[in-house]
Amino acid sequence: MMDLHCHVDLYPDHSEILSDIENSGYYVLSVTTVPSAFNGTAHLTKNLSNCRTALGLHPQLAHQRVNELSLFDSLCGVTRYIGEVGLDGSRGYAEHIEIQKLVFEHILSKCCEFDDKILTIHSLNAVDEVLALLRKYPNCGTSILHWLLATKKQVNRAAGLGCYFSVGPAMINSARARKVISWLPKNRVLLETDGPFAKTDGKPALPSDVVLVIEFLSELWGETIDQVQDDLKLTLKNLLSNKNA
Score class of each variant (00 low, 15 high):
Asp116Leu: 09
Ile121Lys: 05
Val180Gln: 09
Gly202Trp: 09
Val211Tyr: 06
Met1Lys: 14
Leu48Asp: 04
Leu44Ala: 02
Cys163Glu: 07
Thr193Gln: 10
Val167Lys: 11
Asp231Ala: 03
Arg80Asn: 03
Ser74Gly: 00
Ser174Glu: 11
Ile172Gln: 14
Gly56Cys: 07
Tyr26Lys: 13
Ala132Gly: 08
Asp230Gly: 02
Thr224Pro: 05
Arg157Tyr: 10
Gly40Pro: 07
Val228Leu: 03
Val66Ile: 03
His96Trp: 12
Leu212Trp: 10
Val155Phe: 05
Val8Ala: 10
Ala175Gln: 15
Ser70Lys: 13
Trp221Gly: 00
Val8His: 04
Leu61Asn: 06
Arg135Pro: 01
Ile107Leu: 05
Tyr164Arg: 08
Met171Ile: 02
Met171Lys: 09
Ser24Gln: 12
Leu44Tyr: 04
Lys136Gln: 09
Ala205Lys: 11
Lys153Arg: 15
Asn125Cys: 11
Gly141Cys: 06
Ala37Leu: 13
Gly162Asn: 14
Pro138Trp: 02
Leu134Gly: 04
Asn39Pro: 01
Met1Trp: 15
Leu234Trp: 10
Tyr81Glu: 00
Leu240Gly: 02
Tyr81Ala: 00
Ala205Gln: 10
Val34Ala: 13
Leu124Val: 04
Ala42Thr: 03
Arg178His: 07
Gly86Thr: 01
Val8Gln: 03
Val28Gln: 03
Val127Arg: 05
Glu113Ala: 12
Asp230Phe: 06
Arg176Gln: 13
Ser30His: 13
Glu113Tyr: 06
Leu184Lys: 09
Phe38Arg: 08
Lys152Tyr: 05
Asp73Gln: 09
Gln60Pro: 01
Cys76Gly: 02
Glu192Pro: 13
Leu212Ser: 06
Met171Phe: 03
Asp73Arg: 12
Ala150Gln: 13
Ala175Tyr: 13
His7Asp: 11
Asp115Ser: 12
Gln154Trp: 08
Met2Glu: 15
Pro185Thr: 00
Gly202Gln: 06
Ala158Gly: 09
Phe38Ser: 06
Arg188Ile: 04
Ala175Cys: 04
Arg178Ile: 02
Arg91Gly: 00
Glu105Arg: 15
Thr53Val: 11
His58Trp: 07
Ile172Ala: 08
Arg135Gln: 14
Ala37Tyr: 15
Asp194Asn: 10
Lys233Gln: 09
Ala126Phe: 13
Leu61Lys: 05
Leu10Gln: 13
Tyr27Ile: 01
Ala132Asp: 15
Arg178Cys: 15
Leu75Gly: 04
Asp9Met: 14
His146Phe: 10
Ser143Tyr: 02
Asp88Asn: 11
Phe114Pro: 07
Ser241Lys: 15
Thr224Met: 02
Arg188Tyr: 12
Arg135Ser: 12
Cys76Leu: 13
Trp221Met: 00
Ser182Thr: 05
Glu223Ala: 06
Asp231Arg: 15
Asp209Lys: 11
Lys179Thr: 09
Glu105Asn: 10
Asn139Met: 11
Phe165Ala: 08
Gly86Asn: 03
Lys179Cys: 05
Val228Tyr: 08
Ser15Phe: 14
Ala170Asn: 14
Val31Tyr: 13
Leu234Phe: 09
Leu191Phe: 11
Tyr81Gly: 00
